[in-house]
Simulated assay, not measured.
Amino acid sequence: MNPRFGTPPERGRRYIRRPGAYAVLWRDGQILVTHQAAPQPEFQLPGGGVEAGESPIQALHREVFEETGWRIAAPRRLGTFRRFTFMPEYDLWAEKLCMIYLAFPVRRLSAPTEPGHSAHWLDPREAVGLLGNPGDAAFVRGLIG
């Protein structure tokens, strides 16, 4: 069973399972994170939902590019966690199955193409305190010791 972060599921509520791939993007002692302005402003690990017909690695490459403008290399899966949350952009309650990878940003091709996202380089210790998702923070904390 994968660890759970965040609030427990509400009894009697139906959740839709949403697999997603997210990356700790490490380069020169810093990590690249995304800041999402809405529905609530927060720093996040870049990544997102795996679409139908897409592998988690394909989703990871696509989502990281959309949210940061960077191409990545050498993704290595670190683990998975679950969280139960309301996703206002989809108007649904989701059981998010978050697959976390370590990857390396190799080339910036553009600004983020995902509306409301901006890319930021942070010291990993600073990122732990800023990431809005406790699961994201736990994986970064695990990498820095």
Rank of each mutant, 00 (worst) to 15 (best):
R11P: 14
Q40M: 13
L25I: 11
V33K: 10
A23P: 15
R11Y: 00
G6D: 08
R27C: 03
A37T: 07
G20Y: 02
G6T: 03
L32V: 14
W26R: 12
R11F: 10
L32T: 05
A37L: 15
R18K: 00
A21R: 01
H35D: 05
V33M: 10
L32G: 09
Y15E: 13
R17V: 02
Q40R: 14
P9K: 10
T7G: 05
G20R: 00
R14K: 13
I16Y: 05
T7C: 08
L25V: 10
G29E: 06
E10F: 07
R27Q: 09
A38N: 06
V33C: 10
P8A: 06
Q30E: 14
T34I: 08
I31L: 07
R18W: 09
A21Q: 03
L32M: 05
Q40E: 05
D28Q: 02
R27S: 12
Q40A: 14
P19W: 01
G6Q: 00
G20I: 15
L32K: 00
G6C: 07
P39S: 12
L25M: 02
W26S: 03
G12E: 12
L25P: 15
W26H: 03
P8W: 01
I16C: 06
T7Y: 09
E10Q: 02
H35Q: 08
P39G: 12
Q36A: 13
Y22T: 11
T34P: 13
